[in-house]
Design a protein around this nucleic acid. Structure first.
Lengths: 216, 216, 216, 216
DNA sequence: GATGAATGAGGGTTCATTCAT
DNA sequence: TATGAATGAACCCTCATTCAT
């Protein structure tokens, strides 16, 4: 296992004093969980990919599931932090157009998302099967929604957004973006040439959402 | 396992002379694959739920994977047939408004989809892990797209739809609908009170898509 | 594993329709548990000695501990039945001498006990470690004691036995016999040439107990 | 692990310069071996209970078995010393009654035995499984028997004891006492209210043995 | 067609032990 | 001396699959 760019992103500061072996295990697990799924990945495989003895995994994580939860919680926590700090500024700006809002929302995190594909693939793949992950994810979503709603309401007051229930609007935005990501990165990446997914493609999607929420 | 309404829907006419035991196996497998995933479901569990001996499963299907493929292919084939016959009429109508088009697309199949949740849950959950299922799914999508595109082009000619690349527009529609379904039924059903998901909710979504694709 | 004379003794009538493999497993487990102890015996060893696949053990017994409990409960149950039927007649006789009583008690079961050494070795070895076995054993003892006490009281009334608390007397007899058996068969068989343990040796022990309980 | 009264008793003088950690390990091992048995106790458990790193155990003892042998040999050696010095005086007295002899034998060591329960529990539990411990134990017994026999013969000459083979008599005494101890402290402590086991109870047992060996 | 006893490879996890620090 | 990260064999148990009945 060579350098995994996720690790540096996923664990910063205090956690960086993790053992090398522990890092190798996490990196190997992420790769394997992403490509085969949690249930179809054996701890032996993880150990081999991590170039580590099988027992070592269990010195660092009490169980295979613990390893999975450590990874998924790390992803959620990190994303949470990013959203809170970085998107705060997006929300706090009072946008003059919905277009600008959606674009900053999408483009801001675009590179982050596609470079951490494996991470989100794991999350979205395993959420349906593990209640613990699912509830952590739901909490994360629930935590972000209020600021989101405030922003929508502000734009509704300016007449920039349709007079729909703000909660419905937020969910409309989120499910649309999730559908976009899931289709491209999890379900059928072959159907969309991912490499072409450049600014143009995102631009189109932003305009689609914008129009969908603008009073005609 | 008592009567599973899927079976009658999934297998009609010629295949209806399936053994009772075989039906029981399929019904049990569908329930278990949907709730736990393929990899986390054992043949022993399937046999128990189906009230059948373990060996019986392998008299009807050569392997556990064969059973999975039989189920997923059946789902795809049936959906294919439905789309081809039933949606043909939708496409062939020359719509006077995009709104009408989207609504007939969504509402037409709405009840079918939510009553067969388990079936689509399996499909979407397992697609990332099994190339065979994934390519069958991609072929299915590819087969339906041309008629879809024709329809979009027709409406573009009438000035009812924005002048985007028709292929892009189709994918925009599909990913949006998929995001909606995945969020509600697969990823985080707890976040959306599924019971409320009535005509109103779908209406909102249809209008959102419609606006998103209409020239302003 | 060839003929194990225990099995025929341990399981009669209705249970004799046990699978051959199941019998082989039990026989192998008895031999190994007796010689190495439960904790130091692996299921792999049992499978090898029983000439059976390891998985077969778990088709017949849910766990290694289940196998142990099945064996220990069988031993206790069988011994229980024997005591109840066969010793009933001993107790019901109104003995004219304590000597005759003790002798019939000891000699009656002598051959049974030494030919089933392995069985009792297991029981006594594992009792300290497993509460479930211990409480089954205690129940067994408790069930037999009343008849025992009646017998002692009857002899006390005839002036054949010292006027000690009958319960104390019974325990004195039992612990003495247990000490005899444990020393010879479990703890240090090397110290006592077991083969010499013939009628003479038992006769001596019977007289020892008899004198110990007779009014002088 | 705080002060364990065994250690001071088990190791005196020269060995008292043992490391604290070593003492902690021994104390923890004794407790765990006594309650769970050698085979069912892991070095990890010992390390945790001793509040010591796993590696430390192996700095002091080459293997888990070495630790067990160190403990069991210490018990045997210490008991040996005690018997030799302290019981010598018992044997050397020429008793005028068997009663006095048995009582001094039993009561002399009574408190020692019950306060070191755990120690003897380990010994007796593990003897059946480890030849090395068993032969050390047999040597210990063999070493003490001659003085014992002398004493019995002396009393036989005075007509205080029955004219049985002295070796048989000694074994009768030993197995009876062992049966008493094993029943009360190892096999089924629940059956005997151990707390009641006061002077009265021992007195009864002493009289039982005395009568059993006295000419009537 | 249906059974369920039997298989043995492989599952996750614990084990006693080593060794660089 | 003491540590605890690391090991890999062995642990108990489950797996998908076979086959005689």
């Amino acid at each position: 296992m060579q350098d995994s760019h996720w690790l540096e992103w996923l664990f910063d500061n205090d956690e960086k004093n993790m053992t090398n072996k522990k890092k190798q295990i996490i990196a190997a697990a992420i790769e394997l969980f992403a490509s085969q799924g949690y249930a179809a990945t054996s701890t032996k495989e993880i150990a081999e990919k991590a170039e580590v003895a099988e027992g070592t995994i269990f010195k660092h994580f009490n169980s295979k599931m613990d390893l999975m939860l450590f990874i998924s919680n790390s992803i959620i926590e990190k994303t949470d932090t990013l959203f809170e700090s970085d998107l705060a500024e997006v929300f706090n700006q009072t946008y003059d157009s919905l277009d600008a809002f959606i674009k900053s929302l999408l483009l801001n995190r675009y590179n982050m998302i596609i470079s951490k594909q494996a991470l989100f693939k794991i999350l979205l793949q395993e959420i349906p099967f593990h209640m613990e992950i699912r509830s952590a994810f739901i909490q994360f979503i629930s935590r972000q929604i209020p600021a989101f709603i405030d922003c929508i309401v502000a734009m509704q007051n300016k007449g920039l957004v349709i007079d729909e229930d703000p909660d419905t609007i937020v969910k409309l935005i989120l499910t649309t973006i999730m559908g976009f990501l899931l289709s491209h990165y999890v379900i059928v990446p072959e159907l969309f040439q991912t490499q072409n997914l450049d600014a143009t493609s995102l631009e189109t999607m932003a305009q689609f959402i914008t129009r969908g929420l603008t009073k005609s």
